[in-house]
Computed example of a mutant assay.
Amino acid sequence: MRQKVATIQDVARLSGVSTATVSRALSHPDRVAEPTREAVLRAVRETGYVANPMARNLRRRRTGSILALVPNLANPFFSEILSGLASVLTPAGYGLLIADTHTDPAGRLTYYLESGLADGVVVFDGTLPEEALATRRRPPVILACEWMGETLPSVRVDNAAGAEIAIRHLYEMGHRRIGHAMGPVGNVLTESRLAGARRELEALGLPLREDWIFRGDFGLASGSAAAMTWLGLKERPTAVFCASDEAACGFMGALQHAGISVPSAVSVVGFDDIEVAAHLVPPLTTIRQPRRQIGRRAGELLSAMIEARALGGPSELLPVELIRRQSVAPPPPGQGDLP
């Protein structure tokens, strides 16, 4: 004989309150008086009632899901941010859906935003068309790490300030010949970090020579290519600030394969502080982004936008931190001055 499934009406009857109060006590316990909340929870235990999240979301006209649009799921940079995001969304009753914007067809963006697939969207890809994200048929959207003008809220770090800190550290270690391995041209992170590096070098009275700017992207292969270019220079920078830790890993690895020692021959600074940075040989000096905090704040701000039924909201700029490790040393003897 099938046992009867407990309903919210059973809980309301046993606890002596309305079904609306039961629902409120379970979904927003802070809004219910403690004696009432305890009576409801006691009735839930006695009846064995289990809330139906699908039915609740249907009543609230919500899906119970948040969509994260990530440009490259293979990039280890995003793991801790997604973990921070989930740490906020899961207790709030949201499931996290993840889509890779580099592998999905570009036309899927409109579908993601207008299909009702999710109650909110976290965008990690600043190259997506802003006009698509600005449509009023979309759910609330927040950008994490990257940004698009000032029309959409974002949570990110001060990238230019991070680049300034990196350059200043190299200068304080005695370097005057400083190069830069860039990210992809046109990317807001690339442009902001390049601008910060230029500004600090200018303030220190140092040039950023064109032949010391290594164009590429944020990946390992790009860093390796920058190392090959560095090896071919007649006059080499004694230190290189890389726009990402992955590029720094590629740069250091290629030089080591060529028999060049880091930091004896050249010092290297990265940006991000991904997990592997501390385990390289030598460990990588880098600019740390508080990635878990970025994820948490993006989740909190997006949840508030959903509750308020708002398409806009505030942005936050988080500080960065210089992590000193062993990939930076004073320049080689006789190379501390400009050529």
Rank of each mutant, 00 (worst) to 15 (best):
Gly312Pro: 00
Val155Gln: 07
His28Phe: 12
Ala258Val: 00
Gly183Phe: 10
Asp245Leu: 10
Thr19Ala: 14
Val32Phe: 07
His28Gly: 01
Arg325His: 07
Gly259Phe: 04
Glu38Gln: 15
Ile260Met: 10
Pro153Gly: 06
Phe214Lys: 09
Val5Thr: 14
Gly295Ser: 02
Gly205Gln: 06
Tyr171Gly: 05
Leu311Gly: 12
Ile287Ala: 12
Gly205Val: 10
Glu150Leu: 05
Glu321Phe: 03
Glu316Trp: 00
Val32Tyr: 08
Ala308Phe: 03
Arg325Ala: 12
Pro184Arg: 13
Leu128Asp: 03
Glu191Ser: 12
Leu41Trp: 10
Arg13Pro: 02
Leu109Val: 04
Leu301Glu: 10
Pro319Ala: 14
Ser303Gly: 00
Ser315Pro: 08
Ala20Tyr: 03
Val268Thr: 08
Asn159Phe: 07
Asn187Gly: 13
Met182Phe: 08
Gly205Cys: 11
Thr151Phe: 04
Val22Glu: 08
Ala265Leu: 01
Leu231Trp: 04
Pro71Leu: 14
Val70Cys: 06
Ser154Tyr: 15
Arg292Glu: 13
Ala197Leu: 11
Gly219Arg: 11
Val188Lys: 00
Pro76Ile: 08
Glu235Tyr: 03
Arg61Leu: 10
Pro319Phe: 11
Ala12Lys: 07
Leu317Asp: 02
Pro153Tyr: 07
Pro331Asn: 06
Ala166Gly: 05
Phe124Pro: 09
Val121Cys: 05
Pro29Ile: 07
